[in-house]
Design a protein around this nucleic acid. Structure first.
Lengths: 170, 170
DNA sequence: AGCTCCTAATTGAGAGTTCATCTACTGCGC
DNA sequence: GCGCAGTAGATGAACTCTCAATTAGGAGCT
């Protein structure tokens, strides 16, 4: 493509392929566990987590999309589904009537609390149990570097809003 | 879940969340690039890569599923689509008539060759350009550890078969 | 007011994945 | 040969995601 084009060298190839394999296995398991035990895919769990960490358990759709690294369209569909399940409620924003506010319901919070331990366990078993503390730190540094390089915030939650109440966030 | 249940500690939380953010951004870009420029999602590109690396450019469906870390069902659908595009051909296995053999066509190989540089460029830009060589090595080690811990082979291609011809594998 | 441009969010179609089910064939024991 | 369990793969429905189009409201200008 560029005049500086290079194939991946041997180390990069191995890293990329191992990374792909890890990702498929990891998210396959995490997703399946959540789907079975909590009735929702991981993307939806994340949305509930974001809401649970915000004052009033409510957030503008656009903010929620940012903080869950989700497209607006995806979020619309997701919240529609979560609303059907009774876990989220949508209300109009009184200040800007274009906007909608998604709010975690009591049932949604309860579902999250019920799902969290199983989810954390599966994350621990599939990821952290394999790694040394040094590797956990390396992984964080790598992920932060990549995300920042792509011009994004690695921790979309920390954008000036106040933090969590419960440690539900897996 | 266990009597040894623990929440994620602060370091683990940060690592997990940064990892999630990186993954979404990374695969979103890689997938979009391939979809736009080559007309296939990354999962399908991987299937073509696996076939291209194998003698005769042909493999039993079940072997192909293993080596692309894919479920059988997914592979069936995927190969059906790839067959429509004329990139893969399916023939019956003469030895075991339950089996089917997927074979990369000349058009499929050409499509792969055409797609490879753009794909490698996007992988480089979204991942490797952000990392030091040491981090590339750390990432590989982490991915290998996790994959092995889950009882799988980080490099499903290297299972005793002979290796690649062209460096198409991004 | 009227017009244009922009932002917020929803909607519907199309594509990919998963799950459960189904067909076809193999291999083994009776 | 017959039955039966197990394997290889395909299939259809349900679900999620993406993309493009659409609705609806705000902001600024004349």
């Amino acid at each position: 493509m560029n005049d500086t084009f290079r194939w991946l060298d041997v180390d990069e190839q191995r890293a990329w392929r191992a990374f792909l394999t890890m990702n498929r296995l990891l998210f396959e398991r995490v997703d399946r566990q959540l789907q079975c035990d909590a009735g929702m895919p991981h993307a939806y769990y994340e949305i509930l987590v974001r809401l649970s960490e915000v004052p009033e358990h409510a957030l503008r759709m656009s903010k929620l999309a940012e903080s869950s690294t989700s497209s607006r369209s995806r979020l619309s569909h997701a919240v529609a589904r979560l609303e059907e399940s009774g876990w989220v409620r949508r209300t109009a924003d009184p200040c800007d009537r274009r906007g909608a506010i998604a709010e975690l319901t009591a049932e949604g919070f309860a579902a999250l609390e019920a799902a969290a331990p199983g989810h954390v366990t599966s994350v621990r078993e599939t990821l952290f149990d394999s790694l040394t503390p040094a590797q956990v730190d390396q992984l964080r540094a790598i992920a932060e570097a990549v995300t920042l390089h792509l011009g994004e915030n690695p921790y979309p939650t920390d954008e000036g809003d106040t933090p969590a109440a419960e440690p539900v966030g897996g």
